[in-house]
Each structure stands twice: as structure tokens, then as C-alpha cells.
Write a protein that binds this DNA or RNA. Sequence first.
DNA 1: GGATCATTGTGCGCCAACGCACATACAACA
DNA 2: TGTTGTATGTGCGTTGGCGCACAATGATCC
Lengths: 233, 233
Amino acid sequence: MPVANRVLFANSLLTALPVKDYQPLLEFMEPIALTAGEVVYRPGELIRHVYFPTDTLVSLLTQAEGHQALEVGMVGREGMLGIPLALGVHESPVSAVVQGSGTALRMTSAHFIRELQQRKLLQLEVYRYIYELMIQMTQTAACNRFHKVEARLARWLLMTRDRMQSNHFHLTQDLLSNMLGVRRVGITKAAGDLRLRDLISYNRGEINILDGDGLEAAACQCYQVVKDMHDAA
Amino acid sequence: MPVANRVLFANSLLTALPVKDYQPLLEFMEPIALTAGEVVYRPGELIRHVYFPTDTLVSLLTQAEGHQALEVGMVGREGMLGIPLALGVHESPVSAVVQGSGTALRMTSAHFIRELQQRKLLQLEVYRYIYELMIQMTQTAACNRFHKVEARLARWLLMTRDRMQSNHFHLTQDLLSNMLGVRRVGITKAAGDLRLRDLISYNRGEINILDGDGLEAAACQCYQVVKDMHDAA
DNA sequence: GGATCATTGTGCGCCAACGCACATACAACA
DNA sequence: TGTTGTATGTGCGTTGGCGCACAATGATCC
């Protein structure tokens, strides 16, 4: 793969590695298309592969006692799926659902575990990412507890934009309500307000961010907190 | 230290190790008293020591944009403080505040990092614990989003009991409101209801669990979920 | 072109929790 | 014994989000 492609399309965890680690890892990798709605992991199920998204977006969801789902983390090209393996556990505690169609590189669990043990630099990257994911989780937890739906929706759209690297994506209000853990009509109302202010447009799941700066102003600071943390890394 | 004491008072992460790993680790350990209210880590601050609580309880708190604090995790004798070090990061993303006075074994960060690299079994224990903490965090996040204050309070009291191994502990309503991310009067009301049902008693911070089974019935299932997960490990 | 399904929008009563203000009760110490 | 500080309890109007039911609109496929 030419260098230009590596930078533009590949997964940042991998491209952060020097060529001598990156190149041999590709041997074990298989590019795979992920389509929106696909369930990569189910809670309690055996993890067969780890995934390094390149231009796809996957949500980590948890469920609580009769209620709908709630997103606890979001994984794009800056991260990976399958971190329990790096912690010695072979099953996923959450479900992982593809939000944005695209591709990822994947590797069998056995290969990943072996390579992880042998490559110190890969270890560094993976553990560092686990740390970042924990911050994202705690920040999201506080956000879900304290902030209003509209601000949370704005934050979610911005985070999605950053990971998809696009101002346009497909997602119905019904799915969004599951991410944020609110009623579908709650999304209808919040999204309607954002649209009134010309910050976004949408039609039957086709969402466009019209005014990114305005949307940032409408979002809670949680967005900036997690972004700054990652950028500083 | 005699075996009986190890089992009763020591930290489970450590006692799970075989003597050949456990014994030398004690060389680097220093017992230290932690008193309620003490701040072990502040966000962004350098981590100087890791702590293995024996009979103390520490809350991991996050803060969000002007609001009060919110507990994202609880660490007792089943865990440790300082996990960012195991992920290659030398600062804490959250603040760690002592809830229940008691003692912990502590070790300098440098020693911990060195020992962790050399002892495979310690690695296994620590990473397994990080996994459990992530589950606790996600479950807590969903709980805070969906469940009522009274059920969450009941859950919190039960989790505290399990970690303190006592039905009695000291904690004001004001502090509790910071754990659960609600108003102080919210705690007054919820606790009053639990007291009316003779599940607990309290007076100026002195809390007693009178009916553990009843309290479990009043709590949300989040309590059982995290407990079962840990017991199965 | 009509039936069906998915998606979005609206209306209404309800309630848990909020913010604020104030009242009481107990503890400690001068 | 009175003062001060901490902890708990109560009252009241407000509100954001919930649950439910139903309407309207756009897509798809015979």
C-alpha cells in the first residue's frame, strides 16, 4: 500500500507504528466491508477477530434492565475493536454495532494476541488507546447524566463527523435515540431545533452538518474535552 | 504475614497471586492509612504510587462542565488504584477520593511498572481487573441514565457494604449526592423512603443496613449484574 | 397506482428530579 | 449557655423528558 493511502485511509493505531512493525502486521490482516446495522460483537460472545476501522464507525452499546440500549463508546479509525483480548479476556462485555458503512482491517484473535506479545510498540499503542477509551466512557457517562438532549445530540454528530471525516452520513432518528438513550421523539424535537437554527439538515436519515462551528457552540463542552485529550496524545 | 490475615484483610488482587510472586512484592509495599475525604489522585496529576486497598473504599469521580461530581467507579479490596500506569500513562484522568477510612498497601509507580513487566501473573491479574472496571463503568453509566434515585442509592449502599465488608459506615447525604450526581435533597428523600421501609437507618452520616435482602429488592438489577460478573471471575 | 412499510412529526397528561429558599436538629467548643 | 457550624428535612413552582397514541409523509414493490 502506498504511503499516501496509509495516511489518508488507514487506521491511526496502525499507521502510528514504524514500517517494520506495520508491514508484517498487514500479512495477517484482511480488509472487510462492514455495513450499517451489522453486529460485530454481542455481549458474552466469543471474540473471533479484532477490527481496525479505516473509514467505518462502530458504536459500543450496553443495555440495562428492560430499557433501551445506551452508547458507551464510539470507535472509528482512531481505535480498534476487541480490546478485551488485550486484557486477557476472550469475550466482549458490550455489543458493537456498525453505524457507518465502510471498511476495516481485521485479524484473527489468535494472531492478534501473538503479535501483541511480541511487538512492544503495538502494545504501547493498544494500551494507550484503552486509556483513551476509558476517558471517553467516563466523559460520556457524565454527559448522559447531566446534559440536555439537544447538546448531547450536537456532540454526537460532531464526534461522528470527526471519525467519518465527512459532514454527511446516514442515520435514522430511531437509531440515534438508542445511542443517546432517549425516546425517538426526543431526537425529533432536538434535531428539529438544530435544523431551525440552520446547523444541520436531514431527511429520512440523511444527515448533513451545515454549520460545524455553530454545532460546536450548541454542543456541551464534553466534545472539546475528549477531542483535546486525543489531540494532545 | 500469616495466611489467615492474608485472606481476611489483604487485597484480593494480591492474594490471588502464588506466594512466590506475592512475597517479593510485599518487599516494595508500604501499608498506609487512608482517611475519608482524602484525595488520592487529582485529574491530570502525576501518579506517584499505586494503591491496593485492604479495608478501605475509594471512589473514582469525574466532573462535567459546571456540574457537580459523578462517581464512575468504586475501588475496594477487590481492585487497585493507579491503573493508568498499566496502560503506559502516568497521570490519572479522574479524581480518586477516599470514602471509607482504612488501610491500603502502596508501592511507588517505578516499582510497580518494573514488577508488572517482570511478573506475568501480576499482569494477568491487573489486566483482568481493568476489564472488570470497564464493565463496572459501563453498567454504572447505564444505571445513572435510566434508573431512579432510590434504586441507585440502594445499589450504591450494597456495593459499599460488599467492599467494606460491613453493614455500617459513615457518609453524609451531601457526599452521597455527589456520588450519584443528584441534589442533596434527592438523597434525603430516597434515604427517607428506604428508612421508612426499615431497610436502613441513619443519623448524621452514620448509616446502617438493617435488611440486606430487602435492600437488594429495592435496588436495580445493575447491582446483581456487576456482582455476578465479578463472582464468576 | 394502490398497498405496505419505514420514517418523521404532533399532541397530551404525567412525573421524577431540579433550583431555590428556609426551617429544624444536633454537635462541638468557647 | 450561648454561638457557630454541620447535617437533615420541608415546601413550592418549574421543567425536561417519559409513555402513549395517532397523524402525515416519503419510499418500495408488486
